[in-house]
Computed example of a mutant assay.
Amino acid sequence: MFENSTTEGKQNTKVLQGKRRQDEVQLQEGEENHLQHYLRCRFHQIKTVHVALVVGVATQLEKLWTPSHTVISCHDPDIRRIYHTSTVSHLVLALVVTIIPFSMMVMLEWACPPKNTPQPHKPSLRKTLVRAFVYMWDSGVGTVFTIFFINFIKIAVAEARPNFWDVCRPNLTEAQCDQVYVHVTWRDCTNPHQLPHPQVVDSMKSFPSGHSAIAVFSAVFMIVYIHRRLWRVCSYLLAPWLQLAWASWAVFCCQSRIWDSKHHWWDVVAGGMLGAFGALITVHHLCRWFDRRERVQDCEAPEDGTHATPASLTPSATYYLIPGSEGDGYKSTPQQEDSE
């Protein structure tokens, strides 16, 4: 009797030791796979950052590239308007498309938590700020690529602005002006207002409107975001008013470019269309239409210190960060469509 119990005890001990070794091997494999996924994710993030930085530097370097010439008619009234300062300056434009959207996203992400958040709890400030920052980062990447494309068109087309004659005042003879069209370079400008050289060169970059593109980009981006966050989720009344405010901002900024004699009407229309297209591409490919369980890179271990199992780290799995979910960490779920 005693020998049988001893034998059973030894067998149970061996079984427990075997399970422990199996669990240790599984945990080690999970840690290795998690580390591989972490490094792979960081590599993709670094590539994205580098691409954005390269495009941003290229966009700034484009200011050093000048159109070879522009073609004008000396008697064209569309290029003889008076020079005015911009109603919407570059600083105002930058503040409106960065500070206001980020502040609005922080408030909406906190006030309208995901449906699976236990009531009356709200998401933590850290998660709210992180999610708003991620959306603003996507918006910034889309804006940079849009500006790069627009500046490329500006240099290729080299259209004179409505205030070109007043800004440049080219040194042309009567014989040259008697021609139907005349080629003018920045070296022909007398610069009567003593403006900086970049502004004189900029008078040859009318088509399309960069201000209009950025304003419409921000408006479309925020209109879609407000629709996803407020419409049929938190408020039926607040959403359309906020969307109307963003649409009004875009219309005002576009119209101001015509009032200030900075652009022709077709420049504004083309810039607005490019901005709307860039915003929709950004929302679709980067923000994934602001889905609550949008796909993110699982680059950090869960806060509770647990490691994902090898099965959950297979390439067929899609990683989602679900704010407010139980455990407040990462989950691995099959790729599927999820709506608000």
Rank of each mutant, 00 (worst) to 15 (best):
R42G: 13
R42I: 14
F43K: 09
F43Q: 14
F43Y: 10
H44D: 12
Q45N: 06
Q45C: 07
I46P: 00
I46Q: 04
I46N: 02
K47G: 11
T48Q: 14
T48M: 12
T48E: 13
T48Y: 13
V49F: 10
V49Q: 08
V49P: 00
H50A: 15
H50T: 13
V51W: 10
V51I: 15
V51E: 11
V51N: 06
V51Y: 02
A52Q: 10
L53T: 07
V54S: 00
V55Y: 03
V55K: 01
V55D: 01
G56R: 00
G56A: 06
G56D: 07
G56V: 07
V57G: 00
A58H: 03
T59E: 04
T59H: 00
E62Q: 14
E62R: 08
L64N: 07
W65A: 08
W65P: 00
W65M: 05
T66H: 06
P67I: 12
P67W: 09
H69P: 00
H69S: 11
V71K: 02
V71A: 01
V71P: 00
V71R: 02
I72D: 04
I72H: 06
I72W: 04
C74M: 01
C74Y: 04
H75M: 11
H75L: 15
D76V: 08
D76F: 09
P77A: 10
P77D: 09
D78W: 02
I79W: 00
I79M: 08
I79H: 00
I79S: 01
R80G: 04
R80M: 14
R81Y: 11
R81H: 11
I82K: 08
Y83P: 04
Y83W: 14
H84S: 09
T85P: 11
T85M: 09
S86E: 12
S86I: 09
T87V: 11
T87Y: 09
T87H: 07
V88N: 02
V88I: 15
S89E: 04
S89Y: 02
L91W: 12
V92E: 12
L93K: 04
L93A: 01
A94Y: 04
L95G: 03
L95C: 08
V96N: 03
V96W: 01
V97N: 01
I100D: 02
F102P: 01
F102R: 03
F102W: 14
F102C: 06
M104T: 12
M104S: 07
M104C: 05
M104Y: 05
M104V: 10
M105E: 07
M105V: 11
V106G: 03
V106I: 13
M107S: 02
M107F: 10
M107C: 07
M107A: 09
L108H: 06
L108S: 06
E109D: 08
A111D: 15
A111C: 12
C112V: 15
C112I: 15
P113L: 12
P113A: 05
P113I: 14
P113T: 10
P113E: 11
P114H: 10
P114Y: 09
N116W: 15
N116K: 09
